[in-house]
Design a protein around this nucleic acid. Structure first.
Length: 644
RNA sequence: GCUGACGUAGCUCAAUUGGCAGAGCACCUGAUUUGUAAUCAGGCGGUUGCGAGUUCGAUUCUCGCCGUCAGCUCCA
């Protein structure tokens, strides 16, 4: 059989001709023996392969060293194999599922009679260290289907995967010491490369993510090239834990939960202030051009039959028993849109009124499955900053540009940056291709006009229209999908929405669904973690805490507190006969932005010794009026806290 | 919903093989009058999530229910 010759192009532009089937390792060695030592894997034409894999295509040839981010996934994938190696040694009965590298590490799924315990995890980790020390090479073998069926005869999950592989696909296995896995790679050369890892948690996971299939036991872990990186990652996890809104929310006394109302928050006075303040800000931004409305919370199923919720969404709706009919004919609303359509349809509309914008902050209920509830981020009762816009197709571009500016501006107030995602027609959809062409064209034009970069998500739109999603990054690098702008061509049909045009004929409007922060609940959770509880002054439930040094200054302190409050500042006075240190500590713990200390000197001079949150002893003595003006200005400007 | 772990004072956590349920903080009282991150002393506080069962005896063991947490997309 004649051997084909492939041309590889090195990063420096040099070319190298190699026979097809040459191992990547040999090519790397031929470039330089030193390079082979540092090489983890290679990228051939952008495709990451390991050194044990024969080269089958030509193209750009890049040697990946530790420094290349792509090599980390290779390390982690090998880590998964080492984990399986260790588990198989200690629990020979464990059948293996999949073990991929994921964003922050890797996992491996096992089918076992008895689930793993934390003690098991510790034992597996210790065993993994042995496997690493034994320095088994990862040996790649390409085998026939029949051989594969023999090798994995006792691993039904692997056989299932094997059976799915296409006729033309190369079937490969990787063996490290005693363990062989059906795997396409790539892997590091031997187990000793995986030095810095940690097993993190165990959890159930459905085989193939399908709830109808059996549940496997998944072990989550992570691995890094350098110990420092691993330590830093563990540290980050701890930091995130410290910022956890459930912990901080309790510490700052913002909200609580009770088992009598699962998935629904109780807001304290302080938390309620935050909701109201965000709400006021949104109202201010929507003072012009929006109509705030309120619609009922409870509806007869007739509405949901028109909207389609009764058929598709009933599982997630709270149904209410009707005492007369003894039927669950009523439901709490899970979304605002249908009720807004009823409002729209309550009278005739002229083209002159469009775009007509209905905004609302009504409470919604969705019966999420119990296992999905989590603090404020996944709840059953919440308030959206919702808006439905009725407009002519010709107005879409303008409106989307306006909404995009609005949403991004809102995020900017909190120091949040957002990435835009433009989602186009999905395979299953309603409407003609011409309609989609127009809708997507208008959205794209609007996005281009904003000058914001956006990512194109082909086929990710809703069945009723294309959309733009806003993906927000917080201060510790986490991502949240918050805002959305969705075009809807289906609802106007279902609800027979219309307006009278300039031509005196009846026309169909388009609906835009818009949310800015998703829900107050989730947004506040994000803000708590984003700011680590240290809210900007305008959002702080307690903006100034006045501290008299001794009892005889309490009267003055109360007077100053009253002046601050009269100036619209949320000030309180802590005149308890505790030591100053004690009271300052509590103020810092509660993340109060300013503490104003009044001693004899300040009382006589009409000043305050102002201590800024997080700034320690660095204090500043200022006149009461000057301080008042400064805080007022910070509130007015919605200033962000100084970095650090 | 499913798998696993967990549920002890308002909060954070203890309680050897089943043997009288504890501490710190918070709260209350008193003393202290404080100059920038915890003053001292005393006191109050619990049907150990709920309900069954096993046992002489259950916070501890078993079962059911409720709730919380991790996870259930990242494709050999």
């Amino acid at each position: 059989m004649a051997t084909e010759t492939l041309q590889l192009v090195l990063p420096n532009g040099a070319t190298r001709d190699v026979a097809a089937g040459t191992l990547a390792r040999d090519v790397v060695a031929s470039i330089g023996p030193g390079l082979l030592k540092a090489a983890i894997a290679v990228a051939v034409d952008g495709d990451v392969q390991d050194l044990m894999t024969p080269i089958r295509t030509g193209g750009a040839f890049v040697v990946l060293k530790e420094s290349d981010p792509r090599s980390l996934a290779v390390l982690r994938h090998s880590g998964a194999h080492i984990l399986a190696t260790a588990v198989r040694r200690l629990r020979p009965d464990a059948r293996i599922g999949f073990g991929p590298a994921i964003d922050d590490g890797f996992y491996y799924d096992f089918e076992v009679e008895k689930p793993f315990t934390p003690e098991d995890l510790a034992a597996f980790e210790a065993e993994m260290h042995k496997v690493v020390a034994e320095k088994y090479p990862f040996v790649r073998a390409e085998i026939s289907r029949a051989e594969g069926e023999k090798v994995f005869a006792d691993d039904p999950l692997k056989l299932e995967r094997l059976a799915e592989l296409g006729e033309s696909e190369v079937i490969s296995t990787y063996t490290d010491g005693p363990f062989t896995d059906l795997c396409r790679g790539p892997h590091v050369p031997d187990t000793s490369y995986v030095k810095n890892f940690r097993l993190l948690s165990t959890a159930g996971a459905y085989w193939r993510g399908d709830e109808r299939r059996q549940m496997l036991q998944r072990i989550y872990a992570t691995a890094f090239w350098k110990k420092e990186d691993l330590d830093a990652h563990i540290h980050r996890l701890e930091e995130a834990r410290k910022r956890d809104h459930r912990v901080v929310g309790k510490q700052l006394d913002l909200f609580m939960f009770h088992h009598f109302a699962p998935g629904a928050a109780f807001w304290t006075e302080r938390g309620t202030f935050i909701i109201n303040t965000l709400n006021e800000y949104l109202r201010e931004l929507q003072r012009d051009g929006y109509q705030e409305i309120k619609t009922p919370l409870l509806y007869n199923k007739g509405l949901w039959e028109i909207s389609g919720h009764w058929g598709k969404y009933r599982e997630n709706m709270f149904l209410v028993l009707d005492n007369e009919t003894k039927e669950h004919d009523f439901s709490l609303k899970p979304m605002n849109c249908p009720s807004h359509y009823l409002m729209y349809n309550s009278r005739k509309h002229s083209y002159r009124e469009l775009p007509l914008r209905f905004s609302t902050y009504d409470v919604l209920h969705r019966n999420e499955v119990s296992g999905s509830l989590s603090g404020l981020t996944r709840v059953r009762q919440f308030q959206q900053d919702d808006c439905h816009i009725f407009l002519m197709e010709s107005q879409i571009a303008d409106e989307v540009r306006r909404l995009t500016d609005f949403i991004l501006g809102y995020y900017r107030t909190f120091g949040l940056s957002a990435a835009l995602r433009f989602a186009t027609r999905p395979p299953v959809r309603i409407g003609s291709d011409e309609m989609w062409d127009r809708a997507e064209g208008a959205l794209r034009a609007a996005l281009e006009e904003t000058g914001e970069p956006y990512e194109l998500k082909e086929g990710d739109g809703a069945f009723y229209g294309p959309k733009v999603d806003f993906d927000v990054t917080d201060s510790i690098g986490r991502h949240w999908q918050l805002g959305t702008i969705q075009l809807d061509y289906a609802a106007p049909e279902r609800f027979d929405l219309s307006y009278t045009g300039e031509d005196n004929a009846t026309h169909r409007p388009v609906v835009i669904h818009r949310a800015v922060s998703g829900s107050f609940e989730r947004f506040i959770a994000i803000l708590i973690e984003h700011f680590a509880g240290a809210f900007p002054v305008w959002l702080s439930p307690e903006q100034v805490r006045v501290l008299p040094i001794a009892d005889d200054l309490a009267a003055t302190a109360h007077e100053v507190t009253a002046r601050l409050r009269a100036a619209g500042i949320r000030a309180s006075c802590d005149d308890r006969s505790e030591t100053l240190n004690y009271r300052i500590r509590e103020g810092e713990t509660m993340k109060v932005p300013y503490m104003a200390v009044i001693g004899k000197r300040e009382a006589e001079a009409g000043t305050l010794a102002v201590r800024e949150r997080g700034q320690g002893k660095k204090q500043e003595v200022v006149a009461v009026d000057a301080f008042t003006a400064r805080v007022q200005e910070e509130i007015r400007a919605r200033a962000l806290p100084a970095a650090g």
